[in-house]
Design a protein around this nucleic acid. Sequence first.
DNA 1: CTGAAAGCGCTTACAG
DNA 2: CTGAAAGCGCTTACAG
Lengths: 330, 330
Amino acid sequence: MSTLQQVAYRAGCSVATAHRVLNRNGPVSDEMVRRVRRAAAELGYRASGRAIALARRRPVIGVLIPSITNPVFAASLSSIQQRMLLAGHSVLIAQSNYDPAQEVDAVASLLNERPTGLILTVCDPERSLALSSSLPPTVLLNNLPTPRFAAAVTTDNFGAGRDLTDHLIAHGHRRILFVSGHFGASDRAKLRYLGHVRAMSNAGLEAFEALQIPFIDSYDQLDLSEAVSTLKPTAIIGSNDLLTLGVMGSVRRLGLSVPLDISVAGFDGIAIGRMMDPALTTVEIPDGTMGAAAASLLLDIAENAAPPRHLTAAYRLRCGGTVRDLNHVS
Amino acid sequence: MSTLQQVAYRAGCSVATAHRVLNRNGPVSDEMVRRVRRAAAELGYRASGRAIALARRRPVIGVLIPSITNPVFAASLSSIQQRMLLAGHSVLIAQSNYDPAQEVDAVASLLNERPTGLILTVCDPERSLALSSSLPPTVLLNNLPTPRFAAAVTTDNFGAGRDLTDHLIAHGHRRILFVSGHFGASDRAKLRYLGHVRAMSNAGLEAFEALQIPFIDSYDQLDLSEAVSTLKPTAIIGSNDLLTLGVMGSVRRLGLSVPLDISVAGFDGIAIGRMMDPALTTVEIPDGTMGAAAASLLLDIAENAAPPRHLTAAYRLRCGGTVRDLNHVS
DNA sequence: CTGAAAGCGCTTACAG
DNA sequence: CTGAAAGCGCTTACAG
């Protein structure tokens, strides 16, 4: 790899001049243009991104998500990047794998790049970020705002849990199992469950305890046999669609049919849910829109010193075929 | 954000000394350790990653994949990162979205970071990389090696296409539609199709033309009505599992059943295929292993000047329930 | 139109 | 044990 200095030397000029022609900035004679271009071409010169970033103090923003293999986070990440590209900020990515310990490291690694701002989806805003004394402007994505982190973009997860449960109850379900990632790793999952509990009690029903299982990338080995045999649910809610797919797999491995034996529903609205047969009943959440909103909000705060705000995106229940109507069953 | 210089000033020492205590390298008096630590803490000092990278010439390798939202590439990427982490190389990611034009830009952006090596999954090795005159050591992942790029990690896609088709033929299928991403964007898809054609002709059957459709992230709107009504296939092969899920969705939207009316099979072995009911028949390909192999190969070439090699990973047919046996149907 | 010099924020010999 | 200085590869005023 050659440097600007080498190009300048070869062109017989100063690095300042070489820089001018290569960046089409400042006045240069045609002769110099020719010589520098030639030298650069001969050396296969490419400016070093890291050197430029340092010299120009190029702005970067950091994004922390639980897992990039979850389409939900991939979607929001992609929106964030697009929005930031327009603003001329590059974006750095870190993953927590739903692990509070890894989360701390991940935030630290982002901080090392001196970001002008942060967009975070964390396990627990209070705990996870307590350590870091001084953070750049930060907006939470999918976590509720706290006194210290007042900027956030969320959806009404409690309402989503309530509405989805209402839907199941309206279809005659009474014994509903809520399978969830660890509440400690996702206030989202917890809120959805709390909404579920509310809907149940509103209907005079008692909710089961949530079955909390560790977050992983693929739930293809999920075993629900014990819970199913002891609780005998007619419906199972998964706290997110990826988990819900695992639930469906597990139910089927028990030799049961979805939805004939057990109904299933989830949250997120991932695309695959629409391609399955029956299609997945789920609460659609506009991840892309939320990601873009978080990016815009962050820019507004970091660049225009706008006050932190809490934005809420609307969810939407999408009825598929995985929920059976028990009302007209003899 | 504070700098080392500020810390040094506050601690009343030189940056060299501040650097020594903060990096536990070189001899320092306890007194200095105390003062520098204190100053750093008070200022909330964090070393700038980009400055360190520049000063230490920290090695980076660049990875180009078609799309991170495809679990297959996400898996290989993750393996690559883990392997590189051990070797102390950071990894830069770029996406092509299966678009040759974007691919060129993506490679260019990787090159700007002066990578010590590249791992690429491209549309067409010859064309895509023709422009770049001088590249660092490069290994192709999922693309066959070429004279210029002799290092590659692949699986036998031709064989995979042949075997999967043999499997369908053995189950009594004669009219098989091959739905694929554009061959121009994936030599992988093309090889799988060629294997399919070979198996068909071996069996004395004529293969349909492949139905090539653009690569996209979600195939939930895929429309196969025309092809299905004119060709009347008893089975459809998708050139990758994500596409195959779209095929299943499309078939079902036509009011047809998988596998009763139409059998379906794909390539890759994504986890979701195992959770569906019926489970997807597919050719499993060890993406993670291949990614790790590519990383190791690259390190070997870049650091030990090892000669470029072509590694091949074994695929495995996984029979699910999406292929119906037509042999005993009246 | 062109160049010398300082700076971005660290690291690394080299003196002392 | 400590510091001055050069260097990583660019960029940016400032002179001329």
